[in-house]
């Protein structure tokens, strides 16, 4: 959804929820504070104008440069970025929300970052968040059934993390 007016209406409804925005990008996006994402989404779905009644895609991008030479040059700190693509069937408009998360909660490796689940807002998010949990390692609080979806349930690690290393063996099956 283009236009600054929309951004302001979110800010008015949720003071402090909007952390940043980039309205000139190819797909203009609004960055939301991690803790507020579920309520903002609920508002966007039920009260926003237009109503974003459908969620197209939920995904996570792992921003981590594993190559130390390149890592010195990049301008960003390592983090995880959640991207929500919203869609309004009535207005046929899209909206992109982004949320920045630490790669590990409290910087302790293995402790997944937490974010409120939007599965209660759109049922689409149910499986999409499971996939993000499975592949990128984000824990969704309030998700009805947070299990791995594509990988086996006893799989170790989060394959879409940049520092993921494929295990050499899985139940006696050679993987590499």
């Amino acid at each position: 959804m283009k236009g600054p007016g929309f951004l302001e209406s979110i800010e008015a409804a949720f003071p402090g929820a909007v952390v940043g925005s980039q309205l000139e990008a190819l797909d203009p996006w609004i960055e939301i504070a991690p803790a507020r994402i579920a309520e903002v989404c609920q508002w966007l779905k039920s009260r926003g104008e237009p109503r974003f009644d459908s969620l197209q895609c939920v995904t996570a991008v792992d921003w981590l440069e594993t190559d130390p030479k390149k890592a010195a040059k990049v301008s960003w700190q390592p983090h995880l970025e959640m991207v929500y693509h919203l869609w309004s069937t009535s207005a046929r408009a899209t909206l992109v929300l982004k949320v920045k998360l630490p790669r590990w909660s409290g910087d302790v490796a293995g402790h997944l970052p937490e974010i409120p689940s939007v599965a209660g807002v759109w049922r689409t998010a149910d499986w999409h968040e499971r996939e993000v949990y499975d592949l990128s390692g984000v824990s969704f609080s309030g998700h009805p059934d947070l299990r791995r979806i594509l990988c086996p349930e006893d799989w170790v690690g989060y394959p879409l993390r940049k520092d993921y290393e494929m295990p050499t063996e899985y139940h006696g099956i050679r993987c590499r």
Binding site: D53, S54, L55, Q56, T89, W122, R123, T124
Partner: peptide
């Protein structure tokens, strides 16, 4: 297997 309009949108 009737899928209502609202459910279809809700499930994406």
């Amino acid at each position: 297997g009737v899928l209502s309009r609202a459910m279809a949108i809700d499930y994406g």
